[in-house]
Amino acid sequence: MKCRKCGGKAVINMPQHHLGLCKDDYLAWLPEQTGRFIEKYAMFGREEKVLVAVSGGKDSLALWEILHRLGYQADGLYLCLGIDGGIAYSSESQRLTEQFAAARGLQLHIVNVEAETGRTIPELARLSLRGRSKPCSVCGLVKRHEMNRVARDLGYNVLATGHNLDDEAAVLFGNTLTWSREYLLRQGPVLPAIPGLARKVKPLCRFYEREMAAYALLRGIEYIYEECPHALGSTSTYYKEVLNRMEHERPGVKLRFYLAFLDAHKSGLFARQEDVQPSLNPCPGCGQPTSAPGLCSFCRLKEKVRSSGEAGL
């Protein structure tokens, strides 16, 4: 296959765009497209401070690299979750993230969940009813809270995550299967800020996961290849596999699924925001908005840790 831009040897084929590109043209194309999407969806401007949530994986490190390349003010936030799983998952991903930031002279904030809450994520999951099967829901809760806290405390306007199209399509697929109206309404490239919660953006939401892996590899970004040990066999991975089987037979189906959803959302196919937006109050513990009448889920989790410590658990 030949590169459509220069006629050289292509290294990647993107059937959904009828586009094959060589290494150099691909490495130029992907950041250009990212810049286009940032503007198209009005994610953030050059005057704004962006906090990139980095996990040490291909997507978030590539996102940080691209934002830096495009000249945005982007700093990193790494949350140490304390997950070992027999492969030193957290310590290795932290090492790779620190190495990435140091090599490029980028500012990286590191937050240790154990230092903040008194427990690692697997320990928090064991303490909480949420973690009876897998720690993923507790992990999501803690990550959302801590990312927002750091963005607010350090004065960042925007929180950027490395969600790619496969991530978004899998979530959309799951929420469509259950017609989860509230979640469907909240999904999109931009989640606007509300008092106490930073704006959240997903600049990679139109790139296939395969394209992000290709970008990281071609750019020489060293990322953690091993999956989170708790994500093995997850529902989102299953949905991604199902969607990829469809994509193989019908190239472009994942992209069309997501873009058609965004169009439907924009045209008001779903309920109006005010119809399903729960009323939010500031949490008396941390000040972040919560739909709960008292403490937010994160502060209730911390309370549980405190009482378990007192009980000698």
């Binding site: 296959m1 292509a10 290294v11 990647i12 084929n13 094959g20 290494k23 994986g57 291909k58 997507d59 993923c136 992990c139 496969d166 996961e209 395969r210 992000m212 892996a213 290709a214 590899l217 071609l218 290849y225 999956e227 989170c228 708790h230 994500a231 093995l232 066999g233 997850s234 989102s236 991975t237 991604k240 596999e241 990829n244």
Partner: peptide
């Protein structure tokens, strides 16, 4: 993503006798 001798290759490439192709898994869950 398929890698031959350190270079990424597309799916239309003919594979040659004796070579090893490294496949990098791209799907992550969670």
């Amino acid at each position: 993503v398929a890698i031959r001798e350190g270079e990424m290759i597309t799916e239309d490439e003919i594979i040659k006798d004796g070579e090893t192709i490294r496949l990098v898994a791209v799907i992550s869950g969670g």
